[in-house]
Design a protein around this nucleic acid. Structure first.
Length: 308
DNA sequence: AACCGCAACAACCGCAAAGGG
DNA sequence: TCCCTTTGCGGTTGTTGCGGT
């Protein structure tokens, strides 16, 4: 693990939110050189960040295959179930949620799911009577949301309202993922009549709903993954994009330069001509067969992430 | 219109494990 | 075998924006 060649003088590292320029530098560097010694990345990429910060930024935000936006009902169920079984083993839980990072899962749990589970637990302990029919009970409790898939407007958890609000575009965290996930709100999550989807684990990945990837957010135009990404080291196997999600892959983006209100790179590409999309393998399909080196360094969801 | 509280999320921090010299 | 560095993980904090009052 020691990386003597990566030794570098101590420096005052920049902290706080990443700027688009920093992201771009990190992307460019990793695209060119692949993953290696994180401690060497800042210097080589021209970043005034420490390697740890670069790694975190890449894993949680920049790496391809990330899905952003709301958690689907199936994902929520997986998190709840695995959290009960594994505890706060977020990295392990994230393994079961393709495109989700441990940080994202953790945040989601802490900000929303934990409360919901506690409410459910309290409700179960304090109310031994059979549950009334949904239409006769208050559907405004968050505890009901999972079973009902029906957030009520005023009681919609913030994480959901947040994504709705994002669509207004006024903020800074608007993403097309959110838009797709908002479809979940108005769709599966909001439609009482919608039959519940099969458990996540039972769905072929390419058929799972709301698969949103952010690679197109940053992939350089005309970037050919098959030719630019480093050769696989076979730590994660091959990557074959599925048809179902490929379109979404190219059509999704992420951009949270939000804290400072900075526009994400290619901010409007989702709404405009989306050159980045067309730049990837042209047809929207990805040749990720040689991305093993990139993915191999990831701790958790790597294998699942590869299953575009 | 201003203020306050809450929620979401990005990022930092500290610790432990892994691994090379 | 020990030491040192890097990496990975989980907990926590800080920032931002929105809704309510």
């Amino acid at each position: 693990m020691g990386c003597r060649s990566c030794d570098k003088p101590k420096m005052n590292y920049r902290k706080g939110l990443w700027s688009p320029e920093e992201d771009q530098r990190l992307r460019d560097y990793i695209l060119k050189h692949g993953l290696g010694c994180w401690s060497a990345v800042p210097a080589k990429a021209g970043l005034q960040r420490n390697g740890k910060s670069c790694r975190l930024r890449w894993i949680n935000y920049l790496r391809p295959g990330l899905k952003r936006g709301m958690f689907s009902q199936e994902e929520e169920d997986v998190v709840i179930d695995l959290q009960a079984k594994l505890g706060n083993k977020w990295s392990q839980i994230a393994m079961h949620l393709p495109g989700r990072t441990d940080n994202e899962v953790k945040n989601y749990w802490n900000s929303y799911l934990k409360k919901r589970v506690m409410q459910q637990a309290q409700g179960a302990s304090s109310n031994s009577s059979p549950k009334s029919p949904p239409e006769l009970t208050s559907m405004s409790t968050t505890a009901d949301l999972s079973s009902m898939s029906m957030p009520m407007p005023m009681s919609m958890p913030m994480h959901q309202r947040h994504h709705v609000k994002n669509n207004s575009g006024g903020g800074s965290t608007t993403t097309s993922h959110d838009q797709q996930d908002d479809a979940n709100i108005s769709g599966s999550r909001a439609a009482l009549s919608a039959p519940p989807p099969p458990p996540l684990a039972q769905q072929p990945f390419e058929h799972q709903a709301a698969r949103s990837f952010v690679f197109s957010d940053w992939a350089p135009e005309s970037y050919s993954l098959s030719t630019h990404w480093p050769a696989a080291t076979s730590t994660s196997g091959n990557v074959t994009p599925s048809h179902g999600s490929a379109a979404a892959f190219g059509d999704q983006m992420s951009g949270t330069y939000g804290a400072g209100g900075l526009p994400p790179p290619h901010q409007d590409h989702h709404h405009s001509a989306a050159p980045a999309t067309t730049g990837i393998a042209g047809s929207g399909y990805f040749d990720l067969l040689n991305m093993g080196d990139i993915y191999g360094g990831f701790s958790s969801t790597n294998n699942d992430d590869l299953l575009f």
